[in-house]
């Protein structure tokens, strides 16, 4: 059974903007798929449609064989946003256990899982810190731990490292691959960084704007596990060039950001 099946998905906003048109994509379990494209290509909207946070105008999405609405209700996925979206009034440990509380887990079971998650994202010793006492990179790790705490089969990530500096981003990229390897979950990852997409992914989905559509899908054949050395191999540069050219062919040069970000309609 495929992890995610997207069939003929289109999305128009009431203002008459067509965010996405006729998207077809299938993601297999254990894959790491990046959605890359310039601002306004609808990549974040597509991620939210997979998560049933935005309803498509046409088409259907299934996650683990269930319709996306049912998949959301049955906690099939965890999500990480660009902002960590941590609750200020909760400690690191309490933030991680939030979804577990909502799922009605018992206190000892929650505590045990939080302990595992804290060590998974290497934040041991910071359990009782509050979010505002952490750096941006650490906050994002808490957010990842929270998303994975209830062992969802699918992890949705919306430019999770977009607000971080390059060095922190590269370190978290490596950590994310380790976590992906340890948990065996499927990841769909939205980014606008070409090296990040190539380094992380098994497949890169290149999208183009106006209207948002899939321009091409590039398989990343670099071996696992990937390390800092991966970034220096000639094959890495070839793939980066390949993605860059696909983006250019898709119509919009990278870095074009004058287009307003799509506004979410109220849920």
């Amino acid at each position: 059974m495929s992890a995610v099946v997207i069939k003929g998905v289109s999305k128009s906003f009431p203002a008459g903007v067509t965010a996405l048109t006729d998207i077809d994509l299938t993601v297999e379990p254990g894959e790491f798929v990046s959605l890359i494209g310039p601002s306004g290509c609808g990549k974040s909207t597509l991620l939210r449609i997979i998560g049933d946070l935005v309803k498509p105008t046409a088409g259907s999405v299934s996650v683990s064989g269930k319709p996306s609405a049912q998949a959301r209700r049955e906690h099939e996925y965890g999500i990480v946003f660009q902002d960590a979206v941590l609750y200020d009034w909760r400690t690191v440990a309490k933030n991680i256990s939030l979804p577990l509380e909502l799922l009605g887990w018992s206190r000892p079971r929650r505590a045990a899982r939080v302990k595992d998650m804290v060590s998974l994202v290497e934040l041991s010793g910071f359990e009782n810190h509050h979010p505002w006492q952490l750096s941006g990179g650490m906050q994002q790790r808490v957010s990842i731990a929270r998303a994975l705490s209830f062992s969802p089969s699918l992890l949705l990530m919306d430019e999770p490292f977009g607000a971080l500096d390059e060095m922190t981003r590269e370190r978290l990229n490596a950590e994310l691959l380790r976590i992906w390897d340890e948990t065996g979950s499927t990841v769909i990852f939205v980014t606008h960084s070409i090296p990040e997409a190539v380094f992380l992914s098994t497949r890169v989905v290149v999208m183009s704007p106006r209207p948002g559509r899939i321009a091409t899908v590039i398989r990343i054949d670099q071996p696992q596990p990937r390390t800092a050395a991966t970034r220096e191999e000639p094959r890495f540069f070839e793939l980066v060039t390949q993605v860059r050219e696909a983006l250019a062919a898709g119509g919009a040069p990278l870095g074009e950001t004058q287009e307003p970000a799509l506004v979410e309609e109220p849920a």
């Binding site: 959301r72 979206v85 979804p99 909502l102 849920a267």
Partner: peptide, 18 residues
């Protein structure tokens, strides 16, 4: 409430009370 936090709660299918 931060709209991101609302979206997060929605992703967990949290009920009104929660």
């Amino acid at each position: 409430v931060d709209p991101g936090a609302l979206e997060l709660m929605r992703s967990y299918a949290a009920g009104r009370w929660d």
